[in-house]
């Protein structure tokens, strides 16, 4: 990794009427890395993407992509970036092939010229090339959109929630594709509401209500977690949550699938006293185990 800055965001703020979408965002994204912008719906991810892809203008602050300012040099940026919006933005009434050819031509190239870049992904949907894009399945639509974003060999790729609404297998495949694209030297900025995808990025930023609440490598963010964390497993999750939440010294108590993560401050209860509390209230057969924080725990801890 060269370590040069590919995307620089300095003090970007943006509001829509009374709503503050982004507040003083500062980010530095290095060349050739996968940078994840992680946050729930409505956190401001798409607003930031639109500013960086020159589609909207920030109220204040500066941003640059490949050293070019997003406002002054927007035409240069448009030549060198690939963008995949959060919604399916290809022409539904055009076939797979027609969509790809159209985007290749519009970006001043041809599919043949850059076939190597997209070969791996395109080969998976090539058998449907005469099918209308609107008739593709979700996973295939997403592959086609990625092909269209890559067809002109961009230096920087912006992917806005590419895995939202896609099944688990396709999501996994998609991330595998991203790491292969990264190998060819493309900087990738990707947003996602799924915390489990965070560990697949080189560096991440957590965004909530328009503010960056933490950033760094996934390990760094996990190491920022200051509290003790226990995983409580049991049969009656609802009851466990109800019993533990009001206890003093407990910061948060949230359900994670079939277990419950309990964050405890320095003076809070330990494993034994948690278990004892549960048993005294008649909840038996539980296990309590101290665990390391995941990104989601960090997110809950920070929010």
């Amino acid at each position: 990794m060269s370590g040069n800055i590919a995307i620089k965001v300095e003090g970007i703020s943006k509001s829509y009427k009374a709503t503050k979408a982004l507040e003083n965002i500062n980010l530095e994204i290095k060349e050739g890395e996968i940078f994840g912008l992680i946050g729930p719906d409505g956190a401001g991810k798409t607003s930031l993407f639109r500013i960086l892809t020159t589609l909207s203008i920030a109220d204040s602050g500066k941003a640059s992509v490949n050293g070019r300012d997003v406002v002054d040099n927007y035409e240069d940026i448009r030549r060198t970036i690939g963008y995949m919006p959060g919604h399916f933005a290809l022409y539904q009434d055009l076939s797979v092939e027609e969509n790809l050819n159209f985007y290749a031509t519009v970006f001043g190239t041809t599919v043949e010229e850059n076939y190597d870049t997209i070969k791996e992904i395109y080969s998976q949907i090539e058998m449907f090339k005469t099918r209308r894009a609107g008739a593709l399945s979700g996973g295939m639509k997403q592959k086609l959109a990625l092909c269209c974003a890559l067809v002109h060999k961009p230096d920087v790729l912006f992917l806005d929630e590419p895995t939202t609404g896609v099944d688990a297998v396709s999501r996994k495949e998609f991330w595998a594709m991203l790491s292969r694209i990264k190998k060819s030297g493309v900087t990738i900025m990707v947003s996602t509401p799924y915390m489990d995808e965070a560990s697949l990025c080189d560096r991440i930023a957590l965004i909530l209500n328009g503010k960056i609440i933490d950033q760094g490598t996934p390990e760094e963010i996990r190491s920022h977690y200051r509290n003790r964390l226990y995983s409580v497993k049991g049969n009656n999750m609802f009851q466990i949550l109800q019993i533990l939440s009001p206890l003093s010294g407990i910061l948060s108590c949230s359900s994670f699938g079939c277990e419950c993560h309990v964050a405890v401050d320095d003076n809070g209860p330990d494993e034994k006293s948690l278990l004892a509390t549960l048993e005294s209230k008649g909840v038996t057969g539980c296990t309590v185990e101290r665990i390391n924080a995941s990104i989601e725990d960090c997110f809950i801890g920070l929010s």
């Binding site: 589609l55 919006p85 399916f88 933005a89 022409y91 519009v106």
Partner: peptide
């Protein structure tokens, strides 16, 4: 409305 304009505008076409 369909959001295709978003992609077209990102292209270098004036």
């Amino acid at each position: 409305e369909l959001g295709t304009m978003e992609l077209v505008l990102v292209s270098p076409v004036k």
